[in-house]
Design a binder for these strands. Structure first.
Length: 503
RNA sequence: GCCGCCAUCGUCUAGUGGUUAGGACAUGGGGCUUUCAAUCCCAAAACGGGGGUUCGAUUCCCCCUGGCGGCGCCA
């Protein structure tokens, strides 16, 4: 049965990443997952994935799938769960993969606890409608009081409840919240105090089988023996509620660590306008997991030294909750780009070819791509890419027969039309004269440079040549391009440019 | 409105009761270069404000301001 737990007998701390499948895995989520993962690995503990899908209206399978695939892509694998499967990693090795825990599969467990609390008289039925609650809230706020539940239904008699139920009213279960000051030590923020009287009676479940978030979390964290709750700061104000539940149920308190939020450039909540949010979108755009991990790790955590480049392995070795920032961090995509271009430059060539191939097939479907040809081009562009998706736009002229560009681009500084034509003719003559067996970058470069240096400005020869081959104002050096394009294609492109100028 | 959290270059951050306040991204300039990229060198760039404590506060305390989060029958 998939709801049963598969706790492993590891000694270290136990942490969980608990997303709700109401949207794709995003930047903020991912950093939370990463820090949980790093903490678990650093301390030889367990990292657990729990899908919080109690809200059936908003939860969707496709988001669960997106979250799981993103975690796998990033290499943040979890350590236990139901439905273990052996997955072939490569020809020699296998990796184990677990399914996630799902709250929707654990209703029986919640039911037990809700029933117990109800029997012990901690809970009561509340039949206030949303409109009534709203009105109560506004009333309180207008008096400058915190907008908590007033306790309207707390003292309904059994017969009143019966009557309301017979009338078909659907209530919810609320907890009689004890009045006290709740204190807890946050591993990042320090001691936090909160007055429970500000809370009102918390809703804990829609019915005996349908717990609400704060309650389900407490049950699961207890059952899963979670020792450290590492989550976003937006949950800080949920913590007192959860502690109240733990106290009533006699559960031990896990340690809490609330991570500062990641904000957009305008210091507001990170939104789609600022940057893509979904990890799957970063993957699509050609960001490498290493870059994302490295970037996110340094957003809020610091290693106490000047090292910028961190592998996942190094992060695991050095990670500590002590070095987490208290204040929020702003998402800066330019730094991500810098990491990404770094990791692209570090990628072995064959791997890079594999990675870039899909982006080309996407642009020119149906066309055969010669791998060796592509490889030569990628060598030229490896240090010029910020993301893999940049490749085709920069190097498209290698794959197109017809170049479209503004004729004016051929002009270097104040050269006249005749100058340009002459310059191209010279290049053409030199290139034509190279024998096939000598047609390589070194020879091409040597001869062209020799010619170019007859003038005071190499650009007079090289600029028009380069533009006629690429149709672009920026590209790698023409020598490399000519070698890859080959003699025939090169001459053809030069001729075309000359013809355009003369027509 | 109420509660909570936070505050060093534009951004990520290091740091200390006495420092030329350090690094990285981005920016500007330069070298190399036909262009772009990579790379190297240089530059500009910060302790939110006001009170304390102290011989001395960016650092410790308080207040203010500002920012953020929460205040659901969402998670």
């Amino acid at each position: 049965m998939s709801s049963e737990l598969h706790l492993k007998k590891k000694k270290g701390p136990r942490v969980r990443f608990a997303p709700s499948p109401t949207g794709p895995m995003h930047i903020g989520n991912t950093r939370t997952a990463l820090f949980n993962f790093l903490f678990a690995r650093h301390n030889q503990g367990s990292f657990i994935l729990r899908i919080e899908d109690t809200d059936t209206e908003r939860s969707e399978k496709k988001w669960e799938k997106n979250i799981i695939e993103s975690l796998k892509w990033l290499g943040l694998l979890w350590d236990e769960g139901p439905n273990f499967q052996k997955i072939k990693k490569d020809s020699q090795s296998y990796i184990g993969e677990y399914g996630p825990y799902r709250q929707s599969e654990r209703k029986e467990i919640y039911k037990r606890y809700i029933q117990k609390l109800y029997d012990d008289d901690y809970l009561y039925w509340c039949f206030c409608t949303k409109e009534e609650l709203q009105a109560q809230k506004e009333e309180l706020m207008s008096r400058g009081e915190p907008p908590r539940y007033t306790g309207h239904c707390r003292n309904l008699s059994k017969s009143q409840i019966k009557k309301l139920k017979i009338e078909g009213k659907r209530g919810i279960l609320r907890l009689k919240v004890p009045l006290k000051i709740i204190k807890f030590e946050d591993l990042i923020k320090g001691e936090i105090k909160f007055d429970s009287s500000l809370l009102g009676d918390i809703a804990i479940a829609k019915d005996f089988e349908t717990p609400l978030y704060n309650f389900a979390v407490v049950i699961d964290d207890y059952e899963m023996k979670i020792t450290h709750v590492i989550r976003g700061e937006d949950h800080l104000s949920n913590t007192p509620k959860q502690i109240i539940f733990q106290d009533i149920l006699n559960f031990p308190h896990p340690k809490y660590a609330h991570l500062p939020l990641i904000l957009g450039p305008g210091r507001n909540k990170l939104s789609k306008r600022d940057a893509p949010l979904a990890i799957s979108d970063y993957k699509k755009a050609g960001y490498l997991p290493e870059a994302l991990i490295n970037f996110l790790a340094l957003l809020g955590w610091n290693p106490k030294n000047d090292q910028e480049i961190w592998s996942l392995e190094e992060l695991i070795q050095n990670f500590s909750l002590k070095n987490i920032q208290k204040s929020p961090a702003i998402f800066n995509i330019e730094k991500l780009d810098w990491f990404n271009s770094y990791y692209i430059r570090q990628t072995p060539l064959e791997t890079l070819v594999d990675q870039i191939l899909p982006y080309i097939l996407d642009k020119i479907p149906g066309k055969e791509i010669d791998r060796e040809y592509l490889k030569k081009i990628i060598i030229l562009y490896q240090e010029r890419l910020k993301k893999l998706s940049d490749f085709f736009d920069l190097a498209d002229f290698f794959f197109k027969d017809k170049l479209e560009f503004d004729e004016k681009l051929l002009y270097w500084k104040n050269m006249t039309k005749n100058n340009i034509v002459n310059s191209l003719e010279k290049s053409k003559k030199i290139i034509s004269s190279i024998k096939d067996e000598n047609f390589n970058k070194e020879t091409i470069q040597e001869l062209l440079i020799k010619e170019a240096e007859k003038e005071d400005d190499r650009g007079k020869l090289l600029w028009p040549l380069r533009v006629s081959l690429t149709g672009k104002s920026a590209s790698p050096p023409p020598f490399d391009i000519i070698e890859i394009l080959g003699k025939e294609k090169t001459i053809k492109r030069i001729d075309k440019a000359i013809k355009r100028l003369l027509d």
